[in-house]
Amino acid sequence: MMALATVVAIAGTLLSACGGASSSDNSSKKEKKVKIGMVTDLGGVNDKSFNQSAWEGLQSFAKKNDLSAGTKTDDDVRYLQSTQATDYTPNLNQLIHQNFNLVFGVGYLMAGDMTKVAQQNPKANLAIIDSAIVDKSNKPLKNVASITFKEEQGSFLVGVVAGLTTKTNKIGFVGGINSELIKKFENGFKAGVKSVNPKAEIYSQYAGAFDAPDKGQAIAATMYGKGADIIYQAAGATGNGVFTEAKSEKKDGKKVWVIGVDRDQYEEGLPENVTLTSMVKRVDKAVNDVSQQTKDGHFPGGQILSFGLKEDGVGIASSKQNVSKDIINQVNGYKEKIIDGSIKVPTTDKEFKAFKS
């Protein structure tokens, strides 16, 4: 933090002594408010997943700093919702041209647009969730803070929960778009399952979208129909369909579970109580931290920030209502091994194959 110059302090003292100081003098100027903007991806701000978590982080930042937050043009903290991919660039540019001090893009699907917009607006401060923005020479762009997570680590832990909880030895994974990012969720999860239950059979399928709950429900119905009693979903709003199907199956008398993602999704399983646990990805914490750094004059532009178990960036939901203490103790043991490097969690199919062997 920058300290006031000694001469200013002395001058203030002299003015006070002479009766010339007032509550509105230069030493107590009102602090200039910061403006932070956010552009959602197609899942929308109420996706009950990472868009929502990002917005919750900004709302927390706004409350802490006495700022207004919403969708009004005069709000200090504001989001714009994208309904199609072609909205990304104009939404980012709109906030930049309205002089927001920092603009977040939520989701790796925005990486191309973020790169283009950042290069066209070198004086703008930008940040992206789930991607690293680099130039043609593979160097990070100086006006973009890239926020990434070690999703495979948190996914490993909920895999341990699934492997120790399943009664049928059949477990499902539903992904949004088959990509390098979501493969981290899948392979980390499968590694966790296999570490404690080598005999478990794992079904994996991708919906091809993050905003298609109907597809998520159809895939879940197939997996539950094949005997899976636990499904881990990493599919954004598509994953809401997995919860819908699980609750329907529960009403029919079947004991099935869903493992939530990105935020604690315990409430998404109510009233049928189908959420076993959730892999929490602290997008809210990361967004809050980067916003505060920017407000304090330390925007982390050009940095690729990585949040894992060690940084409390990923983990298992704190609610844990449906996980036994014995299983949690085992999860904590694996957590320590991952943090100290004893276990290197796979992120790709190739790494998972080597891990399993």
Rank of each mutant, 00 (worst) to 15 (best):
V256N: 00
F307S: 07
G112I: 05
G19N: 10
A221H: 11
Y206H: 12
A111Q: 15
G253E: 00
L67S: 02
E351T: 11
M38G: 08
N169M: 09
F243Q: 02
E186W: 00
K254S: 04
N121E: 02
G105K: 10
K29W: 00
D312M: 02
A118Q: 12
N197Q: 10
L157R: 08
S60E: 09
M223L: 14
V345E: 05
I327L: 04
Q321A: 08
V193K: 05
F352G: 12
H97A: 14
M38H: 08
V258G: 06
Q153L: 03
D113P: 03
P271R: 11
G253C: 00
L309K: 00
H298G: 09
Q119N: 13
A234S: 15
F104V: 09
I133C: 07
K190D: 06
A85N: 14
I343S: 02
E267L: 12
S319W: 02
K150C: 07
G43V: 03
A212Q: 15
K190F: 01
N138G: 01
V77M: 03
V106M: 12
K116V: 09
M114V: 07
A62C: 03
E180I: 09
T89F: 08
T294Y: 00
D66G: 01
K251Q: 15
T222W: 10
Q59V: 04
A111N: 15
N26A: 15
K226P: 07
